[in-house]
């Protein structure tokens, strides 16, 4: 049987050795890729890819939107634009309600505060004491 002991006396661990080589390789690869993506060439390449996709898909997207709009119109159903407009109006209503709610809170707080007549008497100050002495 071959001796599986490393020169330092410990058991040789082929998996551990593989991991070390792997991690060193990945470390170098990671640094290289960070440099690669932080370059004008990468920005240009991804920009071109995205632009090509958007240009190519645009006629299909527009045709689909147009036909969907026609179909919804013929079925007397609201379109996406109608829903968007409605949702925006709802948000505005919600904001107004929120402002009213805040004003009601303010009124409720001011009502809760004791009126000047109901306030407990101030502790005697030097001025009060002088008045009382008269």
């Amino acid at each position: 049987m071959p001796d599986e002991r490393a020169p330092n006396g410990k058991d040789f661990d082929p998996v551990g050795a593989f991991r070390e080589v792997r991690d060193n390789y990945l470390d170098v690869w990671a640094k290289t890729m960070v440099d690669a993506v932080n370059s004008d060439a990468y920005a240009k390449a991804t920009g071109t890819m995205l632009d090509t996709y958007l240009t190519a898909s645009s006629p299909f997207r527009e045709a689909l939107e147009k036909s969907m709009l026609q179909a919804l119109s013929q079925l007397s159903m609201p379109s996406r634009a109608d829903f968007i407009s409605l949702a925006e109006r709802l948000t505005n209503v919600e904001m107004k309600l929120d402002d009213i709610d805040a004003k009601l809170d303010e009124i409720a707080n001011s009502v809760k505060k004791p009126s000047p007549a109901a306030r407990p008497r101030q502790p005697a100050t030097a001025r009060n004491r002088r008045k009382g002495a008269k």
Binding site: V37, N38, S39, D40, Y42, A43, K44, T46, G47, T48, L50, D51, L54, S57, S58, R61
Partner: peptide, 20 residues
């Protein structure tokens, strides 16, 4: 700033992306 490179107006058409 890597993001600044990616969204440079020479390479990235923000209006085209958002229109879609």
């Amino acid at each position: 700033i890597t993001f600044a490179r990616w969204v440079d107006e020479r390479y990235f058409d923000v209006d085209k992306v958002l229109d879609a």
